[in-house]
């Protein structure tokens, strides 16, 4: 049996290693930081972890509908493609920092990219 993406990336340990780096990048990114201004940081870190788990091909129970509901209030406040692109950049930069091979980064990016229309409520 061939290894899944999640296994190739190193499973939950890889998510744990990535979550602080990713969240720090997002919070420091002026293009999107304002969406995170008033949130509870611990709850948000848990959400970032769930997001990375999904992008890394790990177990998750998100549906397109969850993605829509979870981001609807942000779409109302102007969340658009440019912001989604910024998150995608931060995701790739996080994985590069962790020395993940480019082809695996591309696989994870494709999974994250597949949520774009749901996240943006289209």
């Amino acid at each position: 049996m061939s290894q899944s993406l999640f296994e190739k990336l190193g499973g939950e340990a890889a998510v744990d290693a990535a979550v602080d780096i990713f969240y720090r990048k997002v919070l420091s990114d002026d293009r999107i930081a304002h969406f995170f201004e008033s949130v509870d940081m611990e709850a948000q870190a848990a959400k970032q972890k769930a997001f990375l788990t999904m992008a890394f091909g790990g177990p998750h129970h998100y549906s397109g509908l969850d993605m829509r509901r979870g981001h609807a209030h942000l779409v109302k406040n102007g969340l658009n493609d440019a912001h989604f692109d910024a998150v995608m950049e931060n995701l790739a930069a996080t994985m590069q920092e962790l020395k993940v091979p480019e082809e695996l980064i591309a696989e994870a990016a494709a999974i994250a990219e597949s949520t774009r229309n749901d996240v943006l409520g289209r």
């Binding site: 939950e12 998510v15 744990d16 848990a46 972890k49 769930a50 788990t53 790990g58 177990p59 998750h60 129970h61």
Partner: peptide, 25 residues
């Protein structure tokens, strides 16, 4: 998530010790 990740099912053992693997993360 039922996969040990989302932590929604966080509980506490008042008596007895939970296995280490169940405290991951």
């Amino acid at each position: 998530c039922r996969a040990g990740i989302c932590q929604a099912c966080l509980m506490r053992a008042e008596v007895g010790r939970p296995p280490e693997a169940s405290q991951k993360g």
